[in-house]
Design a protein around this nucleic acid. Structure first.
Lengths: 136, 136
DNA sequence: TATTGTTATACTCTATAACTATA
DNA sequence: TATAGTTATAGAGTATAACAATA
């Protein structure tokens, strides 16, 4: 039972990773850069961003540098703690993120065309359940 | 509606990626090496492995080299086409893959334990739909 | 003293182009 | 001619250790 769920998640992960890799190439980004743009919703600090990405904080410096150099995001000083930088999307970054999300949705829809209305309606609940489980 | 489905898949992907990255570190592997070990079921050629991973074939040479050097997999000549090498897990590789899968199942159970039976069932159906769509 | 972000280092992953050996 | 795998190269992601600024 647990193995079934795990292998389902593993399969979804692998397929989504391939999808994201292809989309990243279309937009001349790397997979990680695509992840950062899409996961960047609440002005995280660089350390928090490292946690979101599941990598070491030392990597985040360079990744943010490169995206900042392309004008897609920016560092902003934290108001309370002067050690902290917070990462925000620029207008160009937000626009690109929307194009990426739309493209990803197209690719997913292509693969899930046979889902029923009920199944699609269920997706809202699934997404909510997974993200609330992740934030605990 | 399509966006809901896509964001559910995106969330599952991101959570699974973080999980895999952590597990890879536990086993002193990279995320990609972990993916290769887990995705290596049907003696793929190196080119097929590139497709499975969603990357260029030129990367596969080095990744297979490193895993072969660690005794986790091996190249075997194709019987019909002498240009082709097929990749197989060694005994040590199969053993490690089982330990990774078990560990991943533990993490998924921990992480997604709050999902209802209905939600878990839907995850499995999504995975089945995605992998059959992917193999077309 | 502890934490945040940075730098330096070494290794891995990534795509492009050019090559070889087979087909 | 075309294809499978390799090599060379350059850029990007990765973790470890050491550091400056701030808490």
């Amino acid at each position: 039972m647990t193995q079934d769920l795990a292998s389902a998640v593993a399969t979804l992960h692998r397929e989504a990773a391939v999808l994201y890799a292809g989309i990243a190439r279309e937009f001349e980004l790397t997979s990680q850069q695509t992840q950062i743009l899409c996961a960047l919703s609440q002005r995280p600090s660089l350390g928090e961003l490292a946690t979101i990405l599941g990598c070491d904080k030392t990597n985040v410096t360079g990744m943010v540098d490169r995206l900042e150099k392309r004008g897609l995001l920016a560092r902003e000083p934290d108001e309370k703690d002067r050690r902290v930088s917070r990462v925000v999307l620029t207008e160009a970054g937000e626009e690109l993120r929307e194009r990426i999300r739309t493209r990803f949705a197209e690719c997913v829809a292509e693969r899930f065309g046979a889902l029923s209305v009920e199944e699609r309606a269920f997706c809202r609940r699934l997404a909510a359940a997974v993200s609330s489980a992740g934030s605990r």
